[in-house]
Structure formats: C-alpha cells, structure tokens
Design a protein around this nucleic acid. Structure first.
Lengths: 223, 223
DNA sequence: CGCATTCTTGACCCAACTCAATATAAGTGG
DNA sequence: CCACTTATATTGAGTTGGGTCAAGAATGCG
C-alpha cells in the first residue's frame, strides 16, 4: 500500500482537462476501467480500437526486441493520453505500473473522430504534440547524456509532471527506470546512490521516495 | 551536384499525398522556399509561425546541449511534414542536409487550423502520429541496440522511406548519421566498414552510395 | 592543381555492462 | 504478529563496446 504522498492525482486531472471544454463524453466507450499493477492495458500488435486517458496511477508503454531487450518509451500519468497511434494496430504494449484507472475512448477512424468532436480533437492533437516533444527530448537523453545526466533529467521531468516541489514518490521500480533511460538496474542504483552521496537527493523508506535536496544542481546536470 | 539516383522525389510526393485530397492550398503561406545545404530552415526558440512539407532534398531536426553535444531527432524527406510543434516556439532547429525545397504552411493556432481545412488536418494528424511512431522506434534503437544493429536499422529504414530496392544514396554525411544514432563518426565509419567486410553492403564512390547486398542479414540485425 | 572537408584506421582508455553476492523490503499464510 | 518466501535494491569485482586522441587517406570544391 502506498503511503500518503504530496502528489494529488485529482488536482492534476482538473488542471489538465481545463482546455478540454467538457465535450469529451460523446466518444467515451465506458466510464472507466481499472488495471492491477503489472497487467496489460493493450498489447503490441493488437487492433487499436481504443485510446485512453489516465485517471489515476501510472502507465508505461513498452517495446521489446526478440531477445528480450526492453525499452520503455514513456510513462503516462493522470491527465495524459496514451494509445492513440497511427495504423490499425498498436505498435507498443501498455502496462499498469501500479493500480491504474483509465477512461477508454473509441478510436474509429480519424476522419469520423474529427467530425464527431472538434473540441476533443484539439486536445488530442495537442496531447500528441506534447508526446512528440517529450520523445524528442528523450532521444537527446538516450543518444547523448551520461548516466548521471539521464537520472537527473528523469527526476526533474517527473517532478515537473507530478507538480511537486521536492518530495517525489516514484511509482515505478528500478528496472522500469533502467529500461526507460537505456541503462541497467545496477547503473541506476549506483547513480542514485552517487546522487545521495553528492547531496543532490535524499532517499526515504524503500528508496521509492526521493527528496530533491539540490534542485539547482540537478537542473544543471540535466540540461 | 547529385548524380541521378534511383530515388524519385516526385514519385514519393504523389504517393504520400494521396490521402490529402488536394485541399491543402488554403493554408499555404507561399508556393515554396529553397534552402541551400547547411542552412537553417528555423531555429530552436524561434516563434513557430510556419510548419513545412518537404518537396525535395532532406531536412534534419537538431537538438543541442550547452557543451555542443548534438542529437538529430529525425530526417525529413519528400512528402514528410516537419516543424509542427506544441507551444509558441520551435523546440528543435531544422537544417537543410542538401539542397532543399519546402512548402511553408502558416500555423496560426490549432483551433483555427482545425476549422480552416479538415482534410489537411487529417493528413497532418496522421503525419504527426507517423512521426511519433518513428520516434518510439528510434528510442528503442538509442536505448537498447548495438552499433551494428543501429546502423542496420538505419539503412533499412532509409531504404524503406526512399522506396529503393537496394541502391541507396545517403544524403547526409557520417557526422549526421553519428548524431542521429547516438554514436561517434569513428564508430559509424568502423561499423560501415565492418558491414562491407561481412558482405552485408557494398560501398560506391565516396562511401555515400550504399548497395544493400544482403537485405535478409540486415533485416535480421535491425529487428 | 591545391586546399579544405570528409572519411578511415590505429592505439589506448573508460563509463557502463556483466556476473555474483548480499541486503532490504514486501508479502503471505499460519 | 511473526516466520518464511519472494521480489526488489544495493554493492563489489572484473570485462568490454564504443569513446577519445591522433594520424593519414580520399574526395571534391574553387
């Protein structure tokens, strides 16, 4: 069970859906669906009948190589959309990182989507462009940053997205962080410990709660 | 000047704009603009007044770190759109890899774009989703593939996008490939030579024309 | 033809990986 | 609530793929 954290999913939702104009009900397939930790929301190759908006919890999108190497393209948190992709089938797998609540939307084809609800579309296009922006930023991280810089960037981005000042509860485990940052769990662990020793962060209980002790230093490392 | 290659920009354009329905003229800012090799189409931080469609040539989008480390997010070729981003300013720099011809489109805000030309929007949304797909695929490459696998993936993707069977003229130099694949020029060079020795590819003239001698082998490496 | 780019090759190095062992936390059933 | 089990995280020792530094070799432009 999670301890109570400073992060409030509900606050994040209302903040993010402000631009939506409350017209999104028309395409909803169901009020919401729950997924237990570790379960699959949809799988790579499955027909992309739905896309989703996160209500609470964290979703990861995963790609696998034939030999098991794994890349986590992104994490999706309350207010984020995921699963809207080009083509008839999903190109990634989406899994619940912890207990997750999502709202499914029926995709149909893009053309009819456009006619059905222009206000929703505007929000969706914006969300897709935000996702693309994050992807570009992440390519810089994966292609050109050191382990320490990757970890700093990751923590700062997470803090910004969760809208927390300095107490950050990580929903995902080290292996997820590793597969997101293009590192191994050992390197993630060593890098986190190195940050603790350098006074950049502090760790709580099981290492899942991070206190950003030196935001300026982290910012400098990440950029 | 380029030698005549098997790649036909015009064929690519007509193939890709089939879904567009020829209604895109309404938002065009100008018939077309030319950019010389190495020049900037737009810079990071500049207001994103326009986005573009490539007519001929190749465009790269670039991100820089303060110390000069460079990441090339993507290459854009005839028929591809680039420069449509979230927010008021460009988050990447776009440069001409060779002699380039583009059509600029006035962005305005997304809402009015939506009303102005639904057919264009549909094509644009699709193009953005394609770009996102490529970004996800590229993250797997950057996060988890070896130098040899990266090079194989890169060549196969380029061949597919240029719609060539096995003679591929690379528009970009080694340093561009390196900064796209998260490697150094030396490693790119060594990897290419290794592929030649292994009989996977053959090199022509200056090393800019690649013959895919063993597509099956390359495919196996890339996937 | 000559100069500047671009590309290749070699020798050496190091950041991150692999393999291996604990250590710590989180369940789970009695 | 506690013993037992399993999952997750940390730490250490040794290795390596790709980086760095430094020459050369092509290529091609003016």
């Amino acid at each position: 069970m999670h301890t109570v954290s400073t992060y409030s999913p509900d606050a994040a939702i209302s903040a993010r859906s402000a631009s939506l104009g409350r017209s999104d009900a028309s395409l909803r397939a169901a009020p919401q669906r729950a997924f237990a930790k570790g379960t699959e929301v949809f799988g790579e190759g499955e027909p992309s009948t739905f896309f989703y908006k996160v209500v609470s919890g964290t979703v990861r999108t995963v790609k696998l190589l034939s030999d098991g190497r794994r890349q986590i393209d992104g994490f999706y948190m309350p207010g984020d959309w995921f699963g809207l992709e080009n083509g008839q089938s999903h190109r990634v797998t989406a899994e619940a990182v912890d207990q997750v609540l999502v709202i499914p939307y029926r995709r149909g084809d893009l053309g009819s989507l456009l006619k059905a609800d222009p206000a929703l579309i505007e929000a969706l296009v914006e969300s897709t462009l935000v996702n693309l922006d994050r992807a570009h930023e992440h390519m810089m991280l994966l292609g050109r940053k050191t382990a320490l810089e990757r970890m700093a960037s990751f923590l700062m981005e997470l803090a910004a997205r969760m809208d927390v000042r300095d107490r950050l509860r990580l929903p995902m485990q080290r292996s997820d962080i590793a597969d997101h940052l293009g590192l191994t769990i050992e390197t993630v662990s060593r890098t986190v410990m190195q940050m603790v020793r350098a006074g950049l962060i502090k760790l709580d209980d099981s290492g899942r709660t991070v206190i950003l002790a030196d935001r300026k230093g982290l910012e400098l490392l990440g950029a």
